[in-house]
């Protein structure tokens, strides 16, 4: 199981600003290790964010997203105390969901 995400969700006026830091290698599949062998691709493919049961962001990623991906976005309709849940699925089918409370 992958390490937990760091999620911060904060009100900015009437918007909720979400910042997420995920722990993932994001291997492109093009890099070679010290013995010259290709390191197989291993990267997050799908990211979904929900708040109060509504999807507030859905993303498809390729291996070009940086290692330990950072993502920030803003949405309307959240209020302090609501929970924002972020999920990702990688190309191995590994997945992780974490939550943060809007402050």
């Amino acid at each position: 199981m992958a390490d937990p995400m760091k999620i911060r969700a904060r009100m900015e006026g009437d918007l909720v600003e979400v910042k997420v830091l995920m722990a993932h290698e994001m291997e492109t599949g093009l890099r070679k290790d010290s013995s010259g062998k290709l390191v197989p691709a291993w990267f997050i493919q799908n990211v979904t964010a929900t708040c109060n049961g509504k999807t507030v962001l859905a993303a498809e990623w390729g291996p070009a997203v940086s290692k330990n991906p950072f993502l920030s976005f803003r949405f309307r309709g959240g209020k302090p105390g609501d929970k924002v849940a972020i999920s990702w699925v990688d190309n191995h089918g590994d997945k992780r969901t974490d939550e943060a409370t809007i402050s």
């Binding site: 918007l15 994001m26 492109t28 093009l30 509504k54 999807t55 507030v56 962001l57 859905a58 993303a59 498809e60 990623w61 390729g62 291996p63 070009a64 997203v65 940086s66 991906p69 950072f70 993502l71 920030s72 976005f73 803003r74 949405f75 309307r76 309709g77």
Partner: peptide, 24 residues
């Protein structure tokens, strides 16, 4: 880049068309 598409974000109604991320 070897493959041109890095990321695709779907913006549902209510979400700002504003994205901040990092790529290679």
């Amino acid at each position: 880049n070897p493959n041109i598409l890095a990321a695709d974000f779907e913006i549902p109604q209510g979400t700002e068309p504003w994205i901040n991320t990092r790529v290679k």
